[in-house]
């Protein structure tokens, strides 16, 4: 567990509402976007993420963070979503919604399951060169848009557009791939 995460979590355990609010500001939107890929509903997704935040406040001392706060958040939202759809007798066997959700958020995808990561990397290689480069730098290496723009000698706007296109393409590719898997 990273030291910053440890500090953050300790503060929340002590009831530090400012730190908690900062965490909320950082993650709320991303997590809602992520949840929408499972629930297909804005309000339900917001409710689910809000419930998670309340749970975290009340149970901070019991919550075990294994890798990072971020990984915890995505995993927790995913579990809650899977529970929700389980109630509707639906499952996500091939992690279709999981991948989709990850690609929809603006966050780095460093916390994919290892197997899914392999799939993503293969698909990245099928993207046009610059698009693949931008995507890798942002989503895998976690660089900022600004530093990518500087390194590649393009504008920040270009980076943004490339990222969006890359995500869209990748998503289509991945979805097709699971399609194939599904047939096998």
């Amino acid at each position: 567990m990273r030291i910053e995460d440890k500090i953050i979590f300790n503060e929340i355990k002590q009831g530090n509402k400012e730190v908690y609010k900062a965490l909320f500001d950082d993650y709320y939107e991303h997590l809602v976007t992520f949840a929408k890929s499972f629930l297909f509903d804005q309000q339900e997704s917001e409710n689910l993420v809000q419930d998670l935040f309340v749970f975290l406040w009340e149970n901070a001392s019991k919550v075990k963070i294994e890798t990072s706060v971020k990984a915890y958040f995505y995993q927790a939202v995913r579990n809650r979503c899977l529970n929700y759809i389980k109630g509707l007798k639906v499952r996500d066997k091939n992690h279709l919604m999981y991948m989709d959700g990850m690609l929809q958020t603006d966050d780095e995808v460093e916390y994919f399951d290892p197997q899914i990561m392999v799939d993503i990397k293969t698909s990245i290689n099928e993207l046009p060169e610059q698009m693949a480069k931008v995507f890798t730098m942002k989503m895998i290496d976690g660089e900022t848009r600004e530093s990518i723009a500087q390194e590649l000698g393009v504008s920040v706007n270009t980076v943004k557009t490339q990222l969006q296109r890359a995500k869209k393409k990748l998503r289509e590719k991945l979805l097709d791939k699971t399609n194939l898997l599904f047939f096998l």
Binding site: D25, Y28, D41, Q42, Q43, E46, V49
Partner: peptide, 14 residues
């Protein structure tokens, strides 16, 4: 996008 898509309202959620 979802049926009732709208930007997440931080203030309201908070």
């Amino acid at each position: 996008k979802v049926v009732n898509e709208q930007p997440a309202d931080f203030e309201k959620a908070w």
